[in-house]
């Protein structure tokens, strides 16, 4: 049984490089990094420093060359492709820069999508979807298609989709990168609320210092290496 203070993400000696022909481009070298449960972490750093790569590795959509990534009590670097997909469905909530909602599905259906991978009945699914749409304040827009919503509203639907399965971690790659000041502020407040009220763990990649201010902890990546601020 893990103690209350045990980190929810535990990264040890993580390395990743891209190979282009004979050329090896190191992206991450020997990263060691813990994230506590209920933490709001911002990953910052110059373009090309490997922020997205690190986030993708934690979220289980990219594979490491070396090292270990433990999320909760699962060592994800050893999981096969289908197991990894199943693990993501239950344990990771994704928030993207361009929201990545499915255009042909309504807000309700977009949020319901991850629940189709669970054993929940139609009624249970509808209860969950309505609950999270209420959290993001868009219950009255559930029949709208993404194209009928503003950028900020789309991102709130995307956040509802990310939390509907009650995952262990939320990963967000520049969640405010495509939004105006006011909408960005709304999204950041919403994420802050998820951490404070619902005890979520959020890992956010951002270029925006004002976004990073919301986080409890800021980590800098520079040439594939981490430093604490």
């Amino acid at each position: 049984m893990p103690e209350a203070s045990a980190p929810i993400v535990r990264i040890r000696n993580l390395s990743k490089a891209y190979r282009r022909g004979t050329q090896v481009i190191p992206v991450l070298t020997d990263i060691n990094f813990d994230i506590a449960r209920g933490e709001f972490v911002a990953l910052m750093g110059p373009s090309g420093s490997g922020k997205s790569t690190l986030l993708n590795l934690i979220a289980g959509i990219d594979s490491a060359d070396q090292g270990s990534i433990q999320v909760g009590d699962v060592e994800i670097t050893t999981l096969g492709e289908s197991d990894l997909a199943r693990w993501r469905a239950g344990s990771v909530g994704f928030i993207f820069q361009f929201y990545n909602l499915i255009p042909v599905l309504t807000a309700y259906e977009n949020v319901e999508l991850p629940l189709l991978l669970t054993h929940l009945s139609r009624r249970e699914r509808s209860e969950h979807v309505e609950a999270v749409l209420n959290v993001v304040g868009l219950a009255d827009r559930m029949d709208h298609y993404p194209s009928q919503l503003s950028g900020g509203q789309q991102q709130r639907v995307a956040i509802a989709r990310a939390i509907v399965t009650d995952p262990e971690i939320l990963v967000a790659d520049e969640p405010t990168g495509d939004l105006d000041r006011a909408s960005a502020e709304e999204i950041l407040q919403l994420m802050d609320r998820l951490v404070r009220e619902f005890g979520k763990t959020v890992i956010m990649v951002t270029h925006d210092p004002r976004a990073a201010e919301k986080a409890h902890l800021i980590r800098h990546l520079e040439k594939g290496e981490l430093s604490v601020t």
Binding site: A89, I102, R161
Partner: peptide, 14 residues
């Protein structure tokens, strides 16, 4: 393409 990537990330299998 992005949609397919998103669905996969959400946990849908190949």
């Amino acid at each position: 393409v992005t949609e397919i990537g998103t669905l996969r990330a959400l946990g849908f299998q190949r």
